[in-house]
């Protein structure tokens, strides 16, 4: 298309109308490509956490980096917890007790739905020993996912807060660029941290595994233009998963297990984008249409007298 002569470009303007009719046909062809949604499944070997330890109580793990998230967007989980991290004797004991419960063996991620508003489902599966029920009864536990959203994808902090109110999440927050309206070219990345409760209900009956699912509603910004239009594949960022528990008897510190998940296959969101080659003819036709409409109304207002009043005179 780029190699077309100016004559060819003019010819393209003429076939726009044909394209519009053809676009219906195009949709049928494209829908298979765009609508596909392959789950991304990662097996994590032994499932031992990459970090264990204890933290003083804080609402969000990402809090310390608020306002400076750009420097920390690639932080590993150990760096994320940073100086707050404690490993005292009592902590080691608590970690040891819970370690067998939280062996993260599988992470599955899906993009659910189609179009500009989808849900990112992350399922965490843990091995589940026989004493799981008693441990969960003694502790208050929650799974935490930290999603580094790629440029062009955002989460609505107010939508998340409504989900918190409805009890879907224990807590959720967005850090970074929370502007909901700007297109990709004028916005920055953001990070979502969501917490869900882990309870006895999460133990599955069949294989005695423990499964936690977190479904984040995500939205797309208008992507930058791309030659030829088509679709821009936005690859979802890496996930950091954590589990934190605190003893119901001694709730002053969180016992924490964290995993850095490097997905073996990518999860891609196909987003339609505008074609810069359309710019010229779209502008011309837009302004001509506005002018024609304005002139028609102008003429109609000016000639109003002859259309109505004369008929009344007669």
């Amino acid at each position: 298309m780029q190699g077309l002569s100016p004559m060819g470009n003019r010819y393209r303007y003429l076939i726009v109308a044909t394209c519009m009719i053809m676009s219906l046909f195009e949709i049928v062809c494209c829908s298979q490509k765009v609508g596909s949604c392959n789950p991304c499944k990662d097996f994590l070997g032994s499932g031992d956490p990459h970090v264990t330890g204890c933290l003083s109580p804080q609402k969000f793990l990402f809090d310390p980096y608020f306002g400076n998230y750009d420097d920390h967007i690639e932080l590993k989980i150990k760096d994320l917890i940073g100086e707050e991290f404690l490993l005292s004797e009592s902590c080691e004991e608590a970690v040891h007790r819970l370690r067998s419960l939280f062996k993260l063996t599988v992470i599955e991620r899906h993009l659910i739905g189609e179009g500009s508003h989808r849900r990112l489902l992350s399922s965490l599966k843990f091995d589940c020993p026989s004493d799981a029920i008693s441990v969960l009864e003694d502790h208050f536990c929650e799974a935490v996912v930290i999603e580094r959203l790629p440029l062009g994808v955002f989460a609505d902090p107010f939508e998340l807060s409504h989900l918190v109110q409805r009890g879907v999440f224990q807590d959720a927050a967005v850090f970074g660029d929370t502007n909901l309206e700007l297109p990709s070219a004028l916005s920055n990345q953001s990070i979502v941290e969501a917490h869900v409760k882990i309870g006895i209900d999460n133990i599955s009956g069949q294989n005695r595994g423990l499964e936690v699912s977190i479904e984040l509603p995500l939205h797309i910004r208008y992507p930058p233009l791309g030659a030829g239009g088509g679709y821009l594949g936005i690859e979802m960022g890496r996930l950091q998963a954590l589990v934190r528990c605190r003893s119901r008897a001694k709730p002053s510190q969180w016992i924490l297990f964290g995993w850095d998940v490097k997905p073996s296959s990518s999860l891609v969101w196909q987003v339609p984008r505008g074609d810069p080659a359309h710019a010229e003819f779209v502008s011309v036709i837009t302004f001509v249409s506005a002018l024609v409409s304005a002139l028609l109304i102008f003429y109609s207002a000016i000639s109003y007298h002859s259309l109505v009043d004369n008929s009344k005179d007669s």
Partner: peptide, 26 residues
């Protein structure tokens, strides 16, 4: 709907539909 909820690249037909809507208003 096709653009927003199905994620299909229908910018041109959608823009054309906007022009039709302007003419219908007129």
């Amino acid at each position: 709907y096709l653009l927003e909820f199905k994620g299909l690249n229908v910018f041109i037909p959608l823009w054309f539909a906007s022009i039709l809507f302007l003419f219908s208003n007129t």
